[in-house]
Design a binder for these strands. Sequence first.
RNA 1: GGAGAGAUGGGUGAGUGGCUGAAACCAACAGUUUGCUAAACUGUCGUACCUAUAACGGGUACCGGGGGUUCGAAUCCCCCUCUCUCCGCCA
Length: 424
Amino acid sequence: MLEINKIRLNKENVIELLGVKNFKDADQKINTLIDLDEKKRQVQKQLEDIKADLNVKAKEIGKFMMQGEKDLAEKTKQEVAALKENSKDLEKELSEKEKEIEELLLSIPNLPHSSVPKGKTAEDNIVELMEGEIPKLWEGATPHWDLCAKYDIVDFELGNKITGSGFPVYKGKGAKLQRALINFFLDEATKNGFDEVQPPLMVNEASAMATGQLPDKEGQMYAIPLDGFYMIPTAEVPLTNIYRDTILQEKDFPIKKCGYSQCFRREAGSYGKDVRGLNRLHQFDKVEIVCIAHPDKSYEQLEKMKQHVMGILSKLELPYRILRLCGGDMSFTSALTFDFETYSAAQERWLEVSSVSNFETFQSNRLKLRFKNQEGKTQLAHTLNGSALALPRIVASLLENNQTPQGIRIPKALVPYTGFEIID
RNA sequence: GGAGAGAUGGGUGAGUGGCUGAAACCAACAGUUUGCUAAACUGUCGUACCUAUAACGGGUACCGGGGGUUCGAAUCCCCCUCUCUCCGCCA
């Protein structure tokens, strides 16, 4: 959520930046917002003046009572009653205005960083870097879903039976590979200074609200209405919420956390080749990295997080590319996002395996995640996060790219974790 | 699931209707003293919003959350949430 004060101060700039994100009716919405805000403050002032008066009179009554001046006390009480009538209307108006402002603010996305390219769709993203060679496959090479069946390592049918589509069962070396990747990712993150955390897989409404899953993305999450919980769509939610309602010291920065979790997404409306095999699941595994940084240093941290992801992809010997997302393709909450995609050779397409973003103060505003700056004032911190990494598409790429007539070769860095060098 | 107790500022913890935005202690921060450290002493020490401005100024709200009683509520009443203890169940 954007800060109303900043909008008030930089109105023109805000409207322009929202344009980069292709936000509709930015001009009109921001103007309404500012009008509402103006009115709200006016009403608030009036109301508070009355309340101040009320407080003074209440004290007077106390004094009169003690001094036994009943008449004066009664007279003051009547004055109070009159004032109270006035304040009721103002009170109502104030809370209405506040609600309207809140709703409007919630509907406005984060402002893009100045380096975000204009654009509408994924087509307009900028390829920043491409690393590794696209493998040439042998004639008998097949997409990963066939390989999963051939080696009996991921069973989609079985998952259908137990739960439904998008909940595969990993078997044998497939299960072991999952475990190996999780451990590998966590170890790598820990080496790079991210503290390991094992978070809850369900969160309450306040947490989902604070990181921005609610209210607008409600349909994306599995809900447990009986208890008011939501299955997490990413570990970002619990990891970032560790710091909800927190005031940090400058010396605490940067805070770096990593955590493995299973992620649950309803993915309503997805279809076709995008969802085939491991490309898109309702339940999947992911190691997430989160950073809470000083506003002056957050882009430095973003760069470090990028480096971290690059490092693990290289160790996995996967060809990948980095995209700088354009305004139109960026998430609602992000100020700057880099997507990582690995090449999946049999499908002949790039698969998104990580997304690293700086949210600046957009999340921390709702989280009330602040720090005391050098002047001793509280100020919003910056939050960042990224996947490092999401498993299924990594597995898809590994299986497809490393397939040989003899079986699927495991990259060297992973062998100590899997305990085997080949899936056959 | 049953019974009971509780929720106050960074922590411990006082406070049962007005003098309490909140004692005291601890921690923290700044300073004095000091050869250094320690100790001692002095001061500062919640958050948000509004307003103001020459100003370290003024106001409102907040003692788990929501509602109520009252001229006035941390304090009384109602509802909710959470925590703890005991019992039951259980990986």
